[in-house]
């Protein structure tokens, strides 16, 4: 996208564009990059740097990278990474996070696709109302909505009270502080991130494509598998990434809804930073998490490039 923007500028700013206008154009284009540089790349480099130092008790709680008192001058250690590889706890946490994120993503897709499809095919007036309903939860604080789930799932919560009153159960069900509660929380919270990109790609889909397939002998099921699904794949991929990536590093939902044994990596990160105050290990955890998350993003980009280039 960056190169596309630059190309646009080259064409606009051919012979006679006043210098002030040129500067303005450059400013507009590079402002987002500057923003990313300052608030994303620089903090990451700081994190990255800390992950190679030793923990110390003090302020800050890690050894400096450059230390003139030592013989080697640059002080780098791989101990933190070695520690992560040797201790199962971290690997299990990464795996558990990946599993919870993957299963949640799958459910979001399963629930979100028919919803997005329905919204995309609704009449324009209804469509706006339905989209509004999808976006509406964002108007309430995320934390509040997770607390609301606690209220519903707890032993004396809404669901148990209703079930007990109806006589369907005699003992309250244990729902809160379990993996199921974490799944419910994540699926509920991230569903809109699945629906919106899916809706965008389904809404763009030319209906005559579907009709052409039907005209050529495809049953409604085949129309879906041959045309609708492949043509909405960019939306599927975008939606899955938008759910998977934040779900993988999710902290609030497992902390509030999950049991004590819910070993998601977000919680480990929190523990290392605040409970153990071991910043070097914590930053190493964060760095590995970032690398794991980069894999799906790079796969997506390769897919997109392949799509644009054709066979």
């Amino acid at each position: 996208m960056g190169s596309g923007l630059l190309y646009g500028v080259k064409r606009v700013s051919t012979p006679k564009v006043p210098t002030s206008e040129r500067l303005w154009q450059l400013f507009v284009i590079y402002l987002p990059y500057l923003w990313l540089l300052l608030f994303f790349l620089v903090p990451f480099l700081i994190i990255f740097k800390i992950s190679f130092s030793d923990p110390v008790i003090g302020q800050p709680p890690f050894t400096p990278l450059f230390d003139s008192s030592e013989s080697s001058f640059i002080h780098v250690t791989l101990d933190n990474y070695r520690f992560l590889f040797e201790d199962n706890l971290y690997w299990l946490s990464y795996l558990k996070s990946a599993k919870i994120a993957a299963i949640s993503t799958f459910w979001c897709l399963l629930i979100g696709y028919p919803m997005a499809y329905g919204i995309a095919r609704a009449k324009p007036v209804q469509r706006n109302i339905l989209l509004m309903l999808v976006i509406l939860p964002f108007w309430t604080s995320f934390l509040l909505r997770v607390y609301a789930w606690m209220g519903m799932l707890s032993t004396h919560g809404l669901i148990n009270t209703a079930l007990l009153a109806s006589g369907l159960i005699e003992q309250p069900l244990k729902m809160l502080y379990s993996d199921t509660a974490v799944y419910l929380g994540i699926i509920y919270s991230y569903l809109p991130f699945m629906i919106l990109p899916l809706y965008a790609s389904l809404e763009r889909l030319d209906n005559s494509m579907r009709e052409a397939a039907s005209d050529l002998g495809a049953s409604p099921y085949r129309v879906f598998t041959d045309v609708t699904l492949p043509l909405s794949l960019p939306g599927v991929i975008a939606g899955c990434l938008l759910v998977f990536i934040p779900a993988m590093g999710e902290y609030v939902i497992p902390a509030l809804l999950g049991g004590l044994d819910s070993l998601m990596i977000g919680r480990q990160l929190f523990n290392e930073f605040y409970s153990n105050r071991d910043w070097p290990v914590a930053t190493a955890v964060a760095t590995i998490l970032l690398i794991i998350l980069l894999v799906p993003i790079m796969l997506l980009q390769r897919y997109q490039i392949a799509q644009e280039d054709g066979p």
Partner: peptide, 14 residues
């Protein structure tokens, strides 16, 4: 449509 011995060429070509 998928059972008719009729085919269509769409305006947008589809």
């Amino acid at each position: 449509p998928y059972q008719r011995p009729v085919n269509m060429m769409f305006q947008s070509y589809a």
